[in-house]
């Protein structure tokens, strides 16, 4: 033991040796740091790790009552039941379709909207405010609002389009099991596009204006500048948006619960809604926990893949 320690500086260079005569102070600082972190650690443990662990434990039990104190251990039976159940895989497929479709719309429309919001036009503040208002609407309000707007017999959309002469009779916009999932995805995207646009707008505003000017002088048109300059420079922000929105879309529950409750003909039953049905409607808490835990694992894996891609994107700049 040398009696000296070296500490890195923020510049990455080595600092001068520190005398070892300050152990008490260091210990005090360590305790202070721990004390500061403890509340956050307790909260993280309480609302993330403990429920996750408890969910894992429940998934190995035959938990079929909310007031029963002891449940039988069934090993991996709940998982085996799931993977052999075609209905489970159908919900996984539906959830994947919903996620890809919803995130895709949000990204495409979000980029276009961000591009518009980035223009210097009179009254721009009004457009930006309007966009934020849409995002600020609670999901439950948004879902109820669209449920009424799309109602086939007394919905506002039918009334508007009929008065404009665009349709000659009322339409069932949500449609059957084949179309309903896409309609719900569009409604979900409508609420989230503003968030995506604002994130992308923030990214666009970090791009120096002079490179656009230089490109314009060189004869690059607006479309070309957008394709060869804006999009490549927005890649890191787009990656973040994809990570966030994919995870959120995969967990979709509230909009399904309000708009369709999984119907028609289970056409909008996504994995989170399926877990809810099994756990709370059917009181099959073990099975519901197994679905929830598999979902958490999938999202974790997805996050890791994205984060890795994000890191590569970042280092590639």
């Amino acid at each position: 033991m040398t009696g000296l320690v070296r500490q890195p500086t923020s510049a990455g260079t080595r600092a001068a040796p520190v005398p070892a005569g300050r152990p008490l102070r260091r210990a005090r600082e360590g305790r202070y740091a721990l004390a500061l972190l403890t509340p956050a650690l307790v909260v993280v443990f309480g609302i993330i790790l403990y429920p996750l662990g408890r969910t894992l434990v429940l998934s190995f039990l035959d938990a079929d009552s909310v007031v029963e104190a002891a449940y039988g251990f069934v090993g991996v039976r709940n998982y085996a039941d799931l993977v052999t159940d075609p209905a489970f895989w159908q919900t996984v497929g539906r959830t994947a379709v919903f996620t890809v479709f919803s995130t895709g719309i949000e990204l495409v429309v979000g980029v276009l909207l961000a591009q518009f919001l980035n223009q210097r036009i009179p009254g721009q503040w009004l457009f930006r405010t309007a966009v934020i208002v849409v995002w600020a609407v609670p999901t439950i309000v948004n879902a109820n609002m669209w449920r009424w707007i799309l109602n086939p017999n007394y919905g506002a959309l039918n009334g508007l389009l009929l008065r404009l002469g665009l349709i000659d009779h009322y339409q069932d916009w949500i449609g059957g099991p084949g179309r309903a999932l896409y309609v719900v995805a569009v409604v979900d995207a409508w609420k989230t596009i503003p968030l995506v646009a604002i994130l992308l707008l923030a990214g666009m505003q970090t791009i120096p204006a002079d490179i656009y000017e230089a490109a314009a002088i060189d004869g690059a048109g607006a479309l070309r500048r957008f394709r060869h300059m804006t999009l490549p420079l927005l890649k890191p922000v787009i990656a973040v948006v994809i990570v966030l929105r994919t995870i959120e879309a995969f967990k979709v529950f509230d909009i399904i619960y309000i708009m369709t409750r999984g119907g028609p003909a289970s056409g909008t039953t996504t994995i989170a809604f399926y877990a809810y049905l099994q756990a709370f409607s059917n009181q099959r808490f073990g099975l519901g926990s197994a679905i929830a835990f598999l979902t958490a694992l999938f999202i974790l894996a997805l996050s890791l893949v994205y984060l890795r891609a994000l890191r590569q994107t970042g280092s590639g700049r």
Binding site: A40, L41, V42, V43, G46, I47, P51, L58, E68
Partner: peptide, 12 residues
Amino acid sequence: GTAAFLAACGVP
């Protein structure tokens, strides 16, 4: 933090 932890323990 402890209260939040305990509140999260409401399980079957």
